[in-house]
């Protein structure tokens, strides 16, 4: 671990890290989508809205399944081995902590003084 954001060592494995992060984000969105559509279905009464939502619900579930399988095959997600998943979680938690400790904005970023008056004064 180091706190230097310019150190090239930190750019190692970034593409893989990015892929896992985006895949997890996609999985969570698919999951949220399925739940939202199911809730919407319980609130809709007109037949065409219901058939539309039902089709989308089935597509959403299939999509969720596909992403889950992809993530399991790529070993980005271990629903069956909790110890494996724990290692992965530790890894990403430590990475996040490391980024949080980096001094990403070393120079002064205060923009006070760039404008001679506040927008309301115009």
């Amino acid at each position: 671990m180091n706190n230097d954001y310019l150190d090239p060592i930190n750019s190692l494995h970034v593409p893989e890290l990015a892929d896992t992060t985006f895949a997890m984000d996609l999985l969570l969105r698919a999951k949220e989508g399925v739940r939202n559509i199911a809730v919407a279905l319980t609130e809709s009464a007109s037949p065409d809205v219901r058939t539309l939502l039902r089709n989308q619900l089935m597509q959403g579930i299939a999509m969720h399944q596909e992403i889950t399988e992809l993530m399991i095959n790529k070993k980005w997600f271990h629903p069956y081995e909790l110890s494996e998943q724990y290692k992965l979680d530790q890894l990403s938690a430590n990475n996040t902590l490391m980024i949080g400790k980096m001094n990403l904005f070393p120079v002064e970023t205060n923009r006070k003084g760039m404008f001679d008056r506040t927008p309301d004064d115009h």
Binding site: A30, V34, R35, I37, T42, M58, H64, Y80
Partner: peptide, 29 residues
């Protein structure tokens, strides 16, 4: 009851990974 059932099922389906369980929960949904 039917309404909360649907919501419960939607939660359960998105938590299931094993095809057998997922297929069953989808059918129940």
């Amino acid at each position: 009851s039917a309404k909360s059932g649907i919501r419960n099922y939607a939660m359960a389906v998105t938590e299931a990974g094993t095809p057998e369980i997922k297929e069953m929960l989808t059918r129940h949904l």
